[in-house]
Each structure stands twice: as C-alpha cells, then as structure tokens.
Computed example of a mutant assay.
Amino acid sequence: MTTPITVQVYSDVVCPWCFLGMRNLLDAWPRVGHDAMKVEWRPFILDPNIPAGGVDRQQYMLSKFGSKERIDAAHDRLREMGAQVGLAFDFDAIKVSPNTLDAHRLIHWAGRHGPERQSALVARLFRAYFQEGKDVGNRDVLVQCATDAGMDAAHARELLETDAHRKDVLEAVAAAQRMGITGVPCFILENRYVISGAQPAEVLEDAIRQVAALKERGKLDKDF
C-alpha cells in the first residue's frame, strides 16, 4: 500500500467498546503498514451532564442499567471480548464516572504533536481508566497520563488549568452530532466511509485496504 489514508476515530475514553476498537485498530495498523494511514482521534462525550468532579460509578451504572445483574452481564461480555484481543478490564477498580471534557482537551492538544503521540495518550487514558481504575477526569491523573505518553507535564497542567481547546472540543462534538454519529467508536475513512462499532482488526484492515486502493485509482467517490 503506497497511498496513506486518514482514519478519524470518534471515541470517548470511558467507553469500553472504544477501548476494544482502539485495540483492534492498533492491531490492524502494522498489517497495512505504519505509513499507510494517519489516525486522528476525535472527541465524543457520552454524557456531558456528568459534573466536573464526576459521580459515583456504581450509582451511575445502576441508573443506566437498572440492576446489578444487567451490569454484571455487560461486564462479563466485555471481559470475554477483551480477553480475545489481549485486554483485561478491571471494572471493579473503577470508582468514579468522570466528565471527560478535560481528557478530550488533552487529546486534542496531543494531536498537535503528531498522530503517534496522540494515539499513545489515548491508549494510556484507556488503560488508566479500565485497567487501573483511575479517575480520568482528575487533572493530576491526566497530567500523569500525558507524561507517561511522552508529553511535557508542565505544559499539560497549564493547558488543563485554562480553557485551552475547550471550544475546539465542543465544536468537534457538535459536528459529530450533526454528522449523525450517535454511538462510538466510529471510524471515518478519508472523510467518506463510516465503520461503526468495535469491529475486528480484520474488518478494519480490509476496509482500509479497499479505501486506499480506491484512493490510488482516484475513485474515492465510488462505493467499495
């Protein structure tokens, strides 16, 4: 594959399906070649009504699912799917359902440092929340994640203590809603082709190859 394509991924760092989708995309990436695509992470806030300090996760999940049995069933399914791709979810460790606006501001900033740095930060945030039970709405946690991803801690903290990129993130979220994105993960290839859900790496690889082939032939406006 010689023509790189852009893959925009709309996701939220507290979405377990997005964690699976990220894992599958990162598995597909080397199969098509690291120079074959450029990954851009775009914001989607699952629940903008969560206050800045977050809420108790157990109570929040009960309000969404209605019963502990339904929560456990959903978690069991996710654990099983995660195990199939090498991800271990630790839902019991999660105590807070956070507001993710600050996390998305940090991801937006990381995008200015290049796609690999941005992907590294996204991956670190997913691990922090789903495997370590950390509150990814807490600014100290966010600064540490940015540092772990190779970014400057002082700059990260300065950004979080201001409104930097807040408008950019909210406008991007609104744009996603106007495009009709109602669930994540959502992968958009070359601003034309949409793949919804945590699709297997093989599905993503095949789609990326097909879109790249169309781009090379100058036929992106045709269906594949």
Rank of each mutant, 00 (worst) to 15 (best):
M179T: 07
W29C: 08
D27A: 13
L101E: 06
T2K: 15
V13S: 11
F91E: 02
D148L: 04
T2I: 11
Y129D: 03
H75E: 14
I107K: 01
G114L: 13
L204D: 01
A128N: 03
L78Q: 01
L26K: 07
E205T: 09
A146P: 05
N138S: 11
G197H: 03
K215N: 10
P200M: 04
D135F: 13
P185D: 04
F187T: 01
V9N: 04
L25K: 01
D72C: 04
R57V: 09
A175N: 13
A153G: 12
V203L: 01
A213C: 05
E80C: 02
K219F: 07
V141M: 06
R157L: 09
M61A: 13
R117F: 03
R178P: 04
A174M: 10
Q58V: 14
I94Y: 03
A88C: 05
L220D: 09
L46C: 11
D168W: 06
E69K: 08
K134R: 14
G33W: 11
D47N: 15
E69F: 05
P98V: 02
G111I: 06
K134H: 07
L121G: 06
A172T: 12
D92F: 08
V13E: 10
P98H: 03
R139Q: 14
E158W: 14
Q131C: 09
V9S: 07
R23L: 00
E216R: 14
D152T: 14
D148T: 03
V9G: 06
Y129A: 07
A73G: 05
A83V: 00
A123S: 12
D76L: 03
D47C: 12
W17V: 00
S63H: 14
R57C: 02
D148Q: 11
G82P: 00
P115I: 06
H104T: 12
D35R: 14
L46G: 09
Q8I: 07
A74L: 06
C145Q: 14
G183Y: 02
H155L: 14
A172P: 00
A176Q: 03
P185A: 04
V184E: 05
L101C: 06
I5D: 01
V169Y: 08
D140T: 15
M1H: 07
D47L: 11
V7T: 13
D56S: 07
Q131T: 13
L170I: 06
